[in-house]
Write a protein that binds this DNA or RNA. Structure first.
Lengths: 218, 218
DNA sequence: CATTCAGTTTTTGTATACAAGAAAGTTGAC
DNA sequence: GTCAACTTTCTTGTATACAAAAACTGAATG
């Protein structure tokens, strides 16, 4: 499948915004970016339109494109919604999950455990993501799966930081255990609650992380 | 706030797709639409990009834009997610709703009741929408509010037909009552359950039937 | 010293022009 | 008559050109 320039540019800009290359409120100059990418303004503008739809930049008419980094309040709200999304996936998956998927979940969880013992955050991160994606999929609702994956992706850079907190991985493994047993026994509400709590904790941790950062900055 | 041509065209095309002017799979010819709107291809292409981001058209590279009407399975999935979104709003709103908003809810509900007695579906529709939007807002999470409103809007044309079902409005009023009391007493789970049930249109069995059909087809 | 207003400059929004790829139509061989 | 390769036409993707609106400059004025 041939990719258009606009696609590549949109992805690259998305990476940069997620990666923090651009600060909140920065103006994205069309001509400068265009010559930087070696293309004309046309595909670049298409890319900006796309980013605007995703909420990564604000497109002020006749003014230009300004990057929209989510503030602390936005992030807390998004984490709250993420927790609820995962809870929904869990509630539905508890009723619909297949045996094969349950086996996959066990496998992902075992590899998570191994990563914890090996002190390997990257591997833990990958397997943890697989664990959650399986649950999204087993919700049996591809629309929900897409929405949840999209928000997951958007929160990815912020989630990653807080994995470094001491003891988080061990605690997370306990929560995975609860999720797994709830799914195995098909107890919808337990699965939903376990997943909501599992993700909401990340949001709260993030909250305190922000607070410490803010205090440190003062 | 000055609107760009691309904005107007995107809205108009969105209306047409929602309104069923274009059937699923129709190709949207750039040059024909451009001369139809009296503009060049540039703003029209921007509009198509936006519609693609919203999932209303598929943009096949070097092939053109094709409208993507959701099929029955998609609709069931989206309605299921809508029900869960509303449930989330309800759960959060039960804990966060203000007295003023509660009064507004009562007002909207009263006007709904009046519309039912007056056999006025349009008025009912408008007040019903206000009722729900208040709950979205009182979730206290503007990100959730935006996501829920977006999905609500996308499902609007399909929801409307449903209202014509005999006795639906009366039943709906009963459910509103339950939602209202749950919110008033701050009982999160009751509010969530009431809203989920209120919005869910199809039974679980039908959904899983469709899901298995879809999986079998792959 | 702040302010306002005219002129300049920059930048966006749109139109047009051009190039490359895909669909369609044609010709020729079997 | 059918199928395949070639050519033609059409459509998309990209570049460039132009017009209008916003930002900037700077001097004149209260």
């Amino acid at each position: 499948m041939e990719k258009r320039h606009a696609d590549i540019i949109a992805e690259e800009l998305e990476e940069r915004i997620f990666g923090g290359i651009y600060a909140d409120g920065d103006r994205l100059d069309e001509v400068r970016l265009a010559e930087q990418f070696g293309v004309s303004r046309t595909p670049l503008r298409e890319a900006l339109q796309r980013l605007a739809r995703s909420g990564l930049v604000e497109l002020k008419p006749r003014r230009g494109a300004f990057v929209c980094q989510p503030g602390p309040v936005d992030l807390i709200e998004m984490f709250e919604v993420m927790a609820e999304f995962e809870a929904i996936c869990g509630r539905l998956a508890a009723r619909r999950i297949s045996d094969a998927a349950l086996a996959d979940l066990h496998d992902a969880n075992d590899k998570c455990q191994a990563a914890v013992q090996a002190q390997d955050p990257d591997s833990y991160y990958a397997e943890n993501e697989r664990f959650h994606k399986i649950i999204y999929r087993e919700s049996g609702n591809s629309f929900l799966e897409a929405e949840t994956s999209a928000l997951h992706r958007r929160l990815q850079p912020f989630r990653r930081q807080q994995l470094r907190l001491r003891g988080r991985m061990a605690q997370s493994m306990k929560e995975h255990k609860d999720i797994l047993t709830a799914l195995e026994h098909g107890v919808s509400e337990a699965a939903a609650d376990a997943l909501r709590g599992h993700v909401a904790i990340q949001g709260e941790k993030f909250h305190s992380l922000m607070a410490t950062l803010k205090n440190a900055a003062e």
